[in-house]
Design a binder for these strands. Structure first.
Lengths: 335, 335
DNA sequence: AAGCTTTCTGAAAGCGCTTACATTTCACAC
DNA sequence: GTGTGAAATGTAAGCGCTTTCAGAAAGCTT
């Protein structure tokens, strides 16, 4: 029923091979007249190639998988969106997948491995073992990872939060804060077991400034998880001067919780988040945040992937980018 | 290099056919002993099926494409996320695509058509012709659409904004507003040419209440497009009492713009948006919004698609769901 | 006019898998 | 011991496309 290459070829009175040459090869030696006839007929009967067949025949698809752990999180969708532009700009197709953590915190890679793509880009791959991953090849497919956790032996674009986390704490200190708490999720025992650069930056700065570290630990990074913990912390210990938040999403949740206990976020309690999500500037108060250099991350990731697709045997490629502190009303109180 | 079915079969000393039967058919007649041997060997050498080959051989993939026009928009990602759960719950795989409008406002469907999937679910398909779409088949593939615009001849889950838009306007009237403007994007001459149910609801209610309609039209629905237009409108005509916004995303942008000209959103100018995005409750002021019944939409969409995959010839399936007005501080001033 | 290129086209194999059909084996009934 | 059917397995074709190789046609050169 579907119109296949053969249909086109038959109508045009040529062999499959010639039709294929016309439809793909730009520089294939085909008579001008033949080429035009084939193209015309293909358009007439609305031929679209069967990608599965193509993939099987060539072993390539000109498609990459973009793999995100939680598409709904504003930051992920920001990266995914930008990466998508980068991929399509380079004339590749893409398919996006959203993989939740499994119950035990591991990832199920089997589905994506069998999918016919030339490579995969993983956004915010969690620290820990990914089954089938070795030397930047995931089940034999080139893989590049983007994220804020160190990963070894994998092509990886690493955003180092440490320097700017420290800067954020110093900034909060400079506007008068002395009790600066770190609001952080602890899903799957992540906290402390992972090498959280934010934590490193935070602790370094706190120590240098001679302050006491203070932690407010939520079960995970979902907004609903923040309010109750924060409110009970405040009830028990009183409110800190400032909250350094694991990400902007949590900042937003914290902001709401503060209001619910009668505190004004940005005035009574200063806030700094991480990521630089789209909302940060539009929120009220406008959020001070440690911004990830998303466009640069994506550009580098693509370079890495393109290289590895061309030659799977090149050595591991890694690059560290630094984040940037963007100061707004939520930490200055000026809004 | 890849381990194929043949590798498994050879090692197990059986034919490809038998190996295939073991690996797929639950109820295929294979000797217990053989079955166990094949399974063991497949696991040992880490066999993963080649989906392209499978797709080619069977014509099916147990995969559906989830197609969104703008993944980065909070509302789209909400629907995509929920739809993803629904699809995976039903033991199908999915691949997500994000298609921007082309310059002329049309959509490029060719890529997705050739991709080996059993069906596609399109979120917020724009009104207008979609190439290759006829009778719920997109290039021969089952298609179900989810969205707030009427589409004929297509399996479609329609969210009717009209009643709740009218309710929103009446609500604003009841809290004392008399100048209620509609803040709406006009990308690609969309406004007025599309059958915008929000507009219908708005105009109906405005007329019934004996008020004057007032339009603030932005170039598109991107946040950056809102501020300048809104501010110059206010400079020219003064501020309205209330803004009924095309979506929550625009409400957030409007909120910021209002503050920038010294007005307090929710007090000086009441706000109602549409969609019910995740942010709406956490925003300050909390946003009154016309919520789409996302979970129900997704459940129905899946039912439609499953039916059509099973039998492409069934008559067109359509369902209309109604939105719900969720009242919060941005319209009551109580926050 | 013979020989040599160059240009164009077709035949055929094969990518990894499924599946209809054929075949073998075996247990059981007569 | 023959016949029958069920159970288990193998054979082979084919899904739609690409690509190698070889052959045909046409244009040169001498």
């Amino acid at each position: 029923m579907r119109v296949s290459l053969r249909c086109v070829a038959e109508r045009a009175g040529v062999s499959d091979a010639t039709a294929s040459r016309v439809l793909n090869g730009v520089d294939a030696p085909v008579a001008r007249e033949t080429r035009e006839r084939v193209l015309r007929i293909a358009a007439e009967i609305g031929y679209t190639p069967n990608l599965a067949a193509k993939a099987l025949a060539t072993g390539r698809t000109k498609t990459v998988a973009l793999w995100s752990v939680n598409l709904r999180a504003p930051h992920s969708s920001q990266v995914v969106y930008c990466m998508r532009d980068e991929i399509m700009k380079n004339d590749y197709d893409l398919t996006i997948s959203d993989f939740k953590f499994r119950v035990d915190g591991a990832l199920d890679t089997s589905r994506i491995i069998s999918w016919p793509v030339d490579g995969v880009i993983a956004v915010d791959l969690p620290r820990g073992d990914v089954p089938g991953l070795s030397n930047s090849l995931l089940g034999g497919k080139p893989l590049v990872s983007i994220g804020a956790y160190v990963l070894e032996n994998v092509d990886h674009v690493y955003v180092d939060f440490a320097p700017m986390s420290a800067a954020a704490v110093r900034h909060l200190h400079s506007v008068g804060c002395r009790r600066i708490a770190y609001l952080v999720p602890n899903w799957f025992e992540w906290f402390r077991s992972a090498d959280d650069a934010r934590l490193r930056g935070y602790e370094t700065a706190i120590e240098q400034l001679g302050l006491e570290p203070e932690f407010i630990v939520t079960e995970n990074e979902v907004r609903a998880a923040v309010g109750p913990v924060l409110k009970s912390h405040i009830a028990l210990h009183g409110a800190p001067d400032a909250l350094f938040c694991f990400n902007d999403n949590m900042t937003i949740a914290a902001s709401r919780a503060l209001r619910e206990v009668g505190l004004i976020p940005g005035r009574d309690v200063k806030l700094v988040g991480c990521d630089g999500i789209d909302d940060s500037a539009d929120f009220y108060p406008p959020l001070t945040t440690v911004v990830q250099p998303v466009e640069e991350m994506c550009a580098v990731a693509w370079t890495f992937l393109a290289r590895r697709i061309k030659d799977p045997d090149i050595p591991v490629q890694q690059m560290t980018l630094t984040a940037k502190l963007e100061i707004r009303g939520s930490s200055t109180g000026d809004f």
